[in-house]
Nucleic acid binder design. Structure first.
Lengths: 230, 230
DNA sequence: AGAGTTCTGGTCTGTGTGACAAGAACAGCG
DNA sequence: CGCTGTTCTTGTCACACAGACCAGAACTCT
């Protein structure tokens, strides 16, 4: 019944228990042609992923959503569990496993928290704990699922042109696509539908606008792109 | 410093802490033409996935490997994290998050623990807690990675014929493959290599034997199969 | 009105995939 | 020993798809 020391607790069954359960979120967005991740300055001064402790009546995804709203003001963001990092030595404060989440936020989102800022997802600079490893896992995950699901809806929630979608896909995949082929293939996935509107005002021919058919996680049924050879 | 009740603890920082950290393993194998999962009888009488509590100086994958050896006698099995299930109400005993793992064991493996037995991965019967959900996630995961990695090495560790490999792949994917096309495609992944031996004694032309090039997780570089349309 | 830019539909070609056909290498039997 | 049946193995063929290119459409700017 008594915590044996500062670093871990003990329950009534005699099992050692963690000192707490944490969540960390990899918040990804697109700025210009680059994939960016949100990092916050920690009390110790180092930078790290936004996160916090899970409450005793909370599901971890609720904690992640709560922290995300604090940093960005956004609700209803795409959120997916990446995995759990539970090496007992990962946090010098004690035995604190963390459940890592991947979040995707719309183009143009700015941090509401002054301690938070965008960094390039590649080369984010030094991060606390094992956060660099978590970020790397997030990059692989989102790139792998790009053409197979509607994860991009988190970054393109509103009506978008195929050029805007292409910029997002290119930033995430790290490659360039032929505009005509990209349009054909994205339409063929069946994940998007035309709104009937067009975006004028810019230079060139106005682009037709599209939206994702569903906000909820979904999978394409038509053509799929192969992933780049490993 | 004092656990507030039987169901959760509290650390020195004032944060509530879980009552313990658990692991559960989905142990998959192939018996005949079917994908099977290992289940154990729990003290309460219900059936569930093999699992246990993580020690304070242990990484969860070590706990999973330890429990797996208790149930099957196997060391060096393929082990991969599936995800974490941490709904505070998932376990009636208290706030106990569990990290779920996927393990693949060779064809012919028999449980060493009398309380453990094989069940069909589809239709395993009622399972305790959220273990049915965890098993479903494991089935999807292994089917999705089948053609993209050498996960099957966990089920086919020794020399095998292409027919034996095909039986395993068909059991996992739940489909049937053309023998000739299967042979061409599996060879084209670059994941396997011929041993030079042949398996005689059975009826028909003796089959050439193959082995996986590497035991460690690896990815194919050649042809890949598309996943079945969702 | 003309030039420049971007979007969009069409075509063409190389390649991967699935299905099929035919030959090779054994065991069992009359 | 030859025939039959089975299984493994190689080869071929048709189709669908990814990628690239081209030309026209639709706008803005000068």
């Amino acid at each position: 019944m008594v915590a044996v020391n500062r670093w871990s607790a003990q329950n009534s069954e005699g099992y050692e228990a963690p000192a707490g359960l944490a969540v960390d979120a990899v918040v990804l967005g697109v700025r210009g042609a680059e994939l960016v991740a949100l990092v916050t300055r920690r009390p110790e001064g180092a930078c790290g992923l936004p996160g916090g402790f899970v409450g005793p009546a909370e599901r971890p995804e609720e904690t992640a959503a709560r922290k995300l709203e604090e940093k960005t003001g956004l609700r209803e963001v795409y959120l997916e569990q990446l995995g759990t990092f539970a090496d007992p030595r990962r946090d010098p404060r004690g035995w604190i496993p963390t459940v890592a989440y991947l979040a995707l936020v719309p183009v143009g989102t700015e941090p509401t928290d002054l301690e938070a800022s965008w960094r390039r997802a590649q080369d984010p600079g030094p991060l606390a704990f094992d956060h660099a490893e978590i970020l790397a896992l997030a990059r692989d995950r989102v790139a792998g699922k790009l053409w197979w699901s509607n994860v991009a809806v988190g970054i393109l929630p509103g009506p978008f042109s195929l050029s805007e979608a292409r910029a997002v896909y290119e930033a995430i995949a790290g490659t360039r696509y032929d505009p005509a082929t990209f349009a054909r293939d994205l339409r063929a996935t069946g994940l998007i539908e035309p709104t009937g509107e067009r975006r004028a005002g810019a230079t060139g021919r106005p682009a037709a606008l599209y939206r994702f058919r569903s906000w909820a996680p979904a999978w394409g049924a038509g053509r799929r792109k192969r992933v780049a050879g490993g």
